[in-house]
Each structure stands twice: as structure tokens, then as C-alpha cells.
Design a binder for these strands. Sequence first.
RNA 1: GCCGGAGUGGCGGAAUUGGCAUACGCGAUCGACUCAAAAUCGAUUGCCCUUGCGGGCUUGUGGGUUCGAGUCCCACCUCCGGCACCA
Length: 840
Amino acid sequence: MSGYEPKSIESRWQAVWAEEGTWEVPNPGEPGFDAAKPKAYVCEMLPYPSGEPHVGHLKCYAVGDAIAHFRRRQGFQVVHPMGYDAFGLPAENNAIKTGEPPRVATERSIESFRRQFQEWGVSIDWSREIATHKPEYYRWTQWIFLQLFEHGLAYRTEAPVQWCPKDATVLANEQVIDGRCERCGTEVIQKNLEQWFFRITDYADRLLEDFDALESWPEHVITMQRNWIGRSEGAEVVFRNTEVDLDFPVFTTRPDTLFGATFFVLAPEHPQLEKLVAGTPAKAAVREYVDRVGRESVEERGAEDREKTGVPLGRSVVNPVNGEEIPMFVADYVLMEYGTGAIMAVPGHDSRDYDFAKKFDLPVRRVIEGVDPEAPGDADGLPFTGDGPMVNSGRFDGRNNRDAYAAMIEWLKEEGRGETAVNYRLRDWLLSRQRYWGAPIPIVYCDECGTVPVPEDQLPVELPEIEDYAPHGRSPLAAATDWVTTECPKCGGAARRETDTMDTFVDSSWYYIRYLDPHNAEAPFSKEAAAYWMPVDQYIGGVEHAILHLMYARFVVKALADLGHLAVPEPFANLFTQGMITRDGAKMSKSRGNTVSPAEYVERYGADTSRTYVCFMGPPERGGDWSDEGVEGVNRFLARLWRLCDEVVERTAADAWAGDDDAPAAGRLAAGEGDARALAAKAHWSIDKATHDFERGFQFNTVIAAVMELVNDAYRLKDGLYGDPTGDAALRFATATAASLIFPFAPHLGAEVYERLTGERVWERPWPVADAAMLVSDTVEIVVQVNGKLRDRIEAPAAAGQDAVLTLAKDSDKVARHLDGKQIVKEIFVPGKLVNLVVR
RNA sequence: GCCGGAGUGGCGGAAUUGGCAUACGCGAUCGACUCAAAAUCGAUUGCCCUUGCGGGCUUGUGGGUUCGAGUCCCACCUCCGGCACCA
């Protein structure tokens, strides 16, 4: 006998899988492709290679690999690829600090990730490996940009954008968290800059509608995206200023409160502001106010409980529903980015407008009856945001505001002063970055021809090597004059290249399609390969990508589908988001010193223990706190299985049981009795439980618990079973079954134990199927309750009917004691389970 | 404020359809093996009362439905996550 030595076991099987390319799968039309098998595309979010993998990676790939193994053995053709999201800011910031080129640091990190994934024994098809910073990959990222450009889905415009002063780059709205840069935490400021955008807003409705096309996504992720898109239905209503003769459309979700509008507010960035106050006494105050707001950070301006501020314009607009002139203001609580940058203010029924009205002593008018019991408001019960009968609303008086809603819009339409409108919170995707380490935007500027796309046959536009990575308010690429200077593809004249690079979310928006045809030099992917494998059947990753990556990927797939390159509307049919692992109850961070290095645990306990532990901690969608004792518990279990195998191999006849399809042994076990049958039955119970929990989703902790129970039973019973042919068969069967079921989590140990017992490779064996006959027994335990309280458990024949079981139940002393002197008023019988006697 | 999720032993967690609450693991206690320790194997382990037999209580709180509720309904409390001056 020898102890459990994960190192030698693990390296042995890793060598087999690497040499034989065990996890490689062919595409349709390639040698070895099996058209009869259904396909399953299992994909974990690709890692961002920075430093070394952390426990979050371990968990993600352990979970994904368990699913991949389970599906393979259920007869699916599984593609399970891997790649690296190699462009991005951290590598570049490191370069600025150390002078080491981003490529060098990134590729070193990729090496480390690849080596560790192999040491973890993850079943990856390495022939499909990609990295987004390689020209053969980003060439096609550029191609996708050009496709979108040519179809009007990519455009360049000057816009107020979020700018991070520290990273010296613009950010997407999605990358600004609480007014701070997602990467470095610096407060962002607004700047007007020429930037590239993708027209994701064109897809707002389809991004919402197609949630229905998904098979299984976590509800909260869908909700987050729904909120982010922020679709609101309402009306656009035009208010007119007669003094300078300008129309001011506003968007409102409450046209029913139009009669309650008592003033009108423009955002400080509103383009008509200048014209309105030009040459008026208000001009100086307005300019001063606008300047002050402009200097404030996004965070300051968005702060909670911020006092309302603003300046009157000395102008007014006409309320189209009643002809009233209402005064105009500029105030920073109105945002230029949303709606039209102007609002009608209804202080009686909107708390923000109410606050402003109080501050500036403006009239507050009630147009809907009612008082909000939660927030009673002032002496008149205003503001009131609920529903009720309308008042002070002319011909609408007396009608419920909800009923009058449509009629109001209809009436506005007839008057030519408004119409139905839909607004979104979603903004277009700002994708240009003034940074070096990204895919260059394939655009050339020519004095004659303007903005010219680089022709497809000139791709990739390669990222040049440079010396100075620091941004100086423009992309570091701008300093590479030789590279910037080029000739116009259209006229051949002098031209310069676009020096901005693409947001890394563009790189990662389509990588899962490239996996399907990673070496294609003619196209980003073959339509056939994509048609066969897409969509991803199971996508796995952290919930931190709930909005950004997942929405961008959905957009890109929809756009590619519209342009005829793809046949699916959605990239990911099923999404699983794993919870975060903490240490000592806190998020792991280097500064806190509570990080867990997977490499260290793999070294000490082996990959099988580390992987099985992260799957056993609890439901993987929830987070969990890392515990060294927990790791040891799992290690103990795997070592127990190992020693069981050792002993069983040594002490039982080699031919007692020869594998899953060993019919004579199975028959003998089914016919057997006593402990041998009990252990065989337990093995079938484990198969049933494991299969069921796998199919239900990601109940890995209970799958592993079921295998632990099986191993525990084998230990309890083994000494009485050795030497008897049926006992030997039961032990071999139970041990091999434990190995087979634990294989998706502990592939090396699973393979080793299974091979020692059967001579077979477990991954080539189908997932076991429980024998229904072994799941039932002749007798059942019946719970006996009196008035719903448990009083006894009795053995009864499985076939016994109600009368027989009730008689048995009443015969029990423990039950009889509680029936004494009472009258049975009701008898409940649940076959095979329970009896409840109701007494008085 | 809005949206989403969760409250079960000392801890992580389990409990298919309303039917044995606390599976499995950790921790703890005891025993076997050992000169001893580690490792291993075995037993016990929700709380309270009781020498014992046994009894009572228990799934965040309060109510309800039911023969029977962790599970269903109503009200509330707490915690976590996301969004938030979005008209």
C-alpha cells in the first residue's frame, strides 16, 4: 500500500491527455467528426492575463470543466476552448512604470496561466487557443469594426465624454462607477472630444426583447441589463418660446401631469441656452452658473441629497395644453444625456421639481387627487406621485390619470404639439481609447477624402513597437510618426492613421466565435463552424461582467447576424455566474494580505483537492469563504477513496467485477442480499443523486456529498464483504462508481482509481445510469405521527396497503402511548412515507 | 428611493411535489492503534429538562392556510448585491 500522492498521479494523466490531445474536437467536415452526436459548447469567460491565476480563476474553470466532463460522458460532442484577453490597461500601466513592453509582461503571464491550467488538468482543446493581442486575432477585430463602420453602426463624433485624468483616456459610461474610473478609482471629468462610437442604442429594443430567446440566465443579470438599458415609455411634448422663436421638446413619462407644469428647466449643457440669454440681463449669471457646473466632477454633481441649484433665464415657454406662460431656468439636476436635456417641471407630482420649486418659491399645483401615505408631503399632501382622479386639468377633470394617459397623448398629436415617445438610458458604446496597448482602429484620415476605412486586404493594421508608453493627452501611438504617416487608400495622397485603439471589450465581444475556427486566415470564422457550434450552450463567469461584456457581446452578435455572418440572435443560451470567494470574510486583495494562491494549494494538496474543494464549498453561484480546514477535509476524502481503492484492489478478486457493462456481476449484485446488496444499492443511489443534481444545474456540493456518502458506506461495510464473490463485486463496483462520479471534479484521481479497478479509461465510459430496480427495496420505513408529531418509525413491506400500515402503526408502543384515552378523528396515509393519526 | 437575492446547529451548508429538519464537510468530545505524537479507524455531537426511560422546544419575527409548513399566503425585521437627480 502506498499513500495518496497527487503529484505523480496528476502528472501522469496530464501527460496522457496532452500527448493524445484527448479534449480536441473536430469541426464539421474534419476527420473524426461525428455527426450523430449532439453538440455542446461549454465556455468560461477568457482570463485577462495579468500576473498569475487567482482562486476566482480556479473556481470558474473547475466549475466549467465539471460541466464539460459531464456533458462529454452523456454523449455530447463538447467543445471547451481557452484563450487570453491580452490587451488592456494594467499591462500598459506596468509598462509606463517599469519600461517593460506590455507584450513581454502579457506573454509571460499567458505562459503562467497556460501552465497552471494544464496543472489543474482542465479539459481544454488546446488546438483552439487564441490571444486577442496577436495580429492574426485582432486583424478580425478590426474587420468587425469595419463591417460596423460600413453599415453605419460605427461613427465618430464630438461628444461630452467621461475622461479619467489619471489614465488619460476616455471611458465608456459602463466603466464609470460612482463617478470614478473603474480601473484606478480616480474621479472622472467630462470633456468634449471626438470619439468613436458603436450604435448599440439601435439595438436597445432587441436587447430587451431577446431576453425571451435565452434558455437560462440568472434573473438578476437580466434585471441589471434591463435597468441599464432603461427603456421608458412616454411622450415628447413641444413647449415654445415665442420671444426668440424656439421650440423646446421635452420627454415625459407623465403626460397626464401636463396641466401641473409650472416652470421649465434646461440642462446647463443645453445647446440653445446661449441663444436664449444672449443680450439679456440674465446672461452673466447663467454663464457663471454653467461654468461652475462644468468644473464639477461627475461624482459631485450626482451626489445624493444634493441641494437643488439653478438660475432663472428671464424667459418663458408656453405650455401647449393650456397656453400658460411658465418661466425657464437652467439647473444641473437636468441632464443633457437623457431625453432632450430639457424638462417640464411638475412640482405637485415630482419630488425633484418640488424641491426646486420650494427653493425658488415657485407655484406648486395639484392636478391629481391623492396623498401618498408613505411620504405625506406638505400641508396639501404634495408632492404626490401616485394615481387618482385628475383636477385642474380642463376637459380631463374627474378622469383617473392612468385612463386619461392615452387620450392626452392622442390630443397632443391632434394639436401637433406632441407624440408618443420612448427613451432609453443606454448610450452608444464609446470604444476609442487614447492608449497604446489595444487593437488600432483601422481608419485613415485624408485631407482630400476625409475619413477612410482601411481596405480589408490591408488588415491587420499592426500595432507598432514604441518606446514611450505614457499618454500625453493623446494616444502614445501619435508619437510613432512613421506609422501614423501613410497614404490614403482611396486617392493615394498623404494621410494619417487614427491613433486611438479599441476598448478591450471589443476584443472580448466575439472571441467565443473565433474559438470555433481559430486558424482561419480568410475570415474571422467559417459560417459552417459557427452555424454548428453557436450559440454557447453554457457560458460561465463572474457576475462583474453582467452588464459590460455580456451586453457588448450580445450587441456584436446581433449586428453580425444582421450583416449575414451569423445565424443566431444571441451568443449565450445559458449563463452561469459564479460567486466570489472571500478570505476571512473579505474580498481578497494584496494590500489586505488575504489572497489565496491556487498554485500553493495545488502544490501542497494537488489539483484534484483544490478543484473539488471550490466545488464543495457551497452552491457555486454563491460566494464562500476560503477555509484551510475545508481544503483538508476534501483532501482527506480523496485520500480515503484512494486507500479504499488500494485495499479493494489488493483484497478482492480481479474478475469480481469488470466494468459498467459487466452483466453477470450486476445480476449477482441485484439478486444479492445483505450488505453486498446494500452497498450496491447505495452506489446506484449515488449515481441517481449525482446525475439528478448535475442535471438540475450546478448543485456540485451535493454531488460531491453523495460520493462521500458512498465512500463512507464502503468503509463501514467492507470488512464484512471481502472474500465473498458478491461482496468483492459490490466493493469493486462501489469504488469504481465513486471514481466515476468524482471524475468531473477530480479527474486525475478519478481516472487512476477507475483504471486500476477496471482497466478502462473513465472519460471514455458513458456517464453511469442508475438501475431503477436497485433504488427500491422490499421494505420501507414509515414515519408515524400523532397530531403531526413524530412518534415512531416502523418497517413495513413496500407493497403494504393503507389498512395494513395503519394496523402496524397502532401496534407500536410508542404510538399507542399517545393514542391512549383519545379518539382518532382522522387518519392520513402517504404510501411509502408516512402515517399521521389525528386524535382528540 | 427602485430592482434583485438571502436569513436553517459552534461554522460552510442539505432538505425533488407541502410529508423523518439539520445530509455532507469543518470544528469539538471520547475511544482504538502508538512508548508518545501525527496520520488513520470507530463512536458521539441542534437546544432545554431528566440518573435513566422519556418529554419539551427549534429553520429571522408575528400572524394565517393545512391532518401536516424551512417550503404556500399576509405583515414586518435584518443582511448582501446592483442601480440611482433618468423627467
